[in-house]
Simulated assay, not measured.
Amino acid sequence: MAKAAILEKPGEGLVIGEVEYADPAPHEVLIDTKACGLCHSDLHFIDGAYPHPLPCIPGHEAAGVVRAVGSEVKTVKPGDHVVSCLSAFCGHCEFCVTGRMALCLGADTRRAKGAEPRMKRAGGDPVNQMLNLSALSERMLIHEHACVAIDKDMPFDRAAVIGCAVTTGAGTIFNAVKLTPGETVAVIGCGGVGLAAINAAKIAGASRIIAADPLPEKRALAEVLGATHTVDALADDAAMQIIDITGGGVHYGIEAVGRQASADLAVKCLRRGGTAVILGMMPLDCKVGLSAMDLLGGKKLMGAIMGMNHFPVDLPRLVDFYLRGLLDLDTIIAERISLDEVNKGFDKLRDGHSARSVVVFD
Results as ranks from 00 to 15, higher is better:
Gly247Tyr: 09
Phe321Ile: 02
Cys286Pro: 00
Arg67His: 12
Ala88Lys: 03
Val166Thr: 14
Leu290Cys: 12
His251Ser: 10
Ala201Gly: 02
Ala159Trp: 01
Asp314Ile: 02
Ile198Ala: 09
Ala135Val: 02
Ala2Thr: 10
Ser41Arg: 14
Ser87Glu: 08
Ala2Glu: 10
Glu61Ile: 14
Gly13Lys: 09
Asp328Asn: 15
Met240Lys: 14
Phe95Ala: 14
His81Gln: 15
Ile142Ala: 13
Arg67Cys: 02
Val161Gln: 08
Gly124Arg: 06
Ile142Leu: 11
Glu8His: 13
Ala4Gln: 06
Leu103Cys: 11
Gly79Asn: 12
Arg219Phe: 10
Ile6Asn: 05
Thr228Gly: 02
Gly106Phe: 09
Leu329Val: 04
Met308Asn: 14
Met240Arg: 10
Pro55Trp: 01
Glu138Val: 01
Ala146Thr: 08
Asp320Glu: 04
Thr246Gly: 04
Glu72Asn: 15
Lys74Cys: 04
Tyr322Val: 01
Ala102His: 15
His145Val: 02
Gly248Ser: 11
Ala186Gln: 10
Leu131Gln: 09
Gly70His: 03
Thr168Asn: 06
Leu284Ile: 03
Cys36Lys: 03
Arg111Trp: 08
Phe89His: 02
Gly99Pro: 07
Leu179Asn: 06
Leu141Gln: 05
Val83Ala: 02
Ser134Lys: 05
Gly171Ser: 03
Lys348Ala: 15
Thr275Lys: 13
Val185His: 06
Gly114His: 08
His145Arg: 13
Pro181Cys: 02
Ile278Ala: 12
Leu141His: 05
Ala115Ser: 15
Ile162Gln: 01
Ile203Asp: 09
Gly169Tyr: 00
Ile209Asp: 12
Ala62Val: 09
Ile209Gln: 11
Gly189Asp: 14
Leu318Arg: 01
Ile278Met: 15
Leu327Val: 14
Pro216Ile: 00
Gly91Gln: 10
Ala304Asn: 12
Val319Lys: 00
Pro58Ser: 07
Ala220Phe: 03
Val76His: 09
Ala263Trp: 05
Glu183Ser: 02
Ala186Cys: 12
Ala115Trp: 07
Phe361Gly: 06
Val288Met: 06
Val224Asn: 01
Tyr21Ala: 15
Pro283Asp: 04
Ala107Thr: 10
Leu7Ile: 14
Arg317His: 13
Leu327Trp: 03
Ile333Trp: 00
Pro24His: 12
His60Gln: 09
Ala263Lys: 05
Ala135Leu: 09
Ala266Phe: 07
His251Phe: 13
Pro283Thr: 05
Ile142Asp: 05
Ser134Tyr: 07
Asp108Val: 01
Gly258Ile: 12
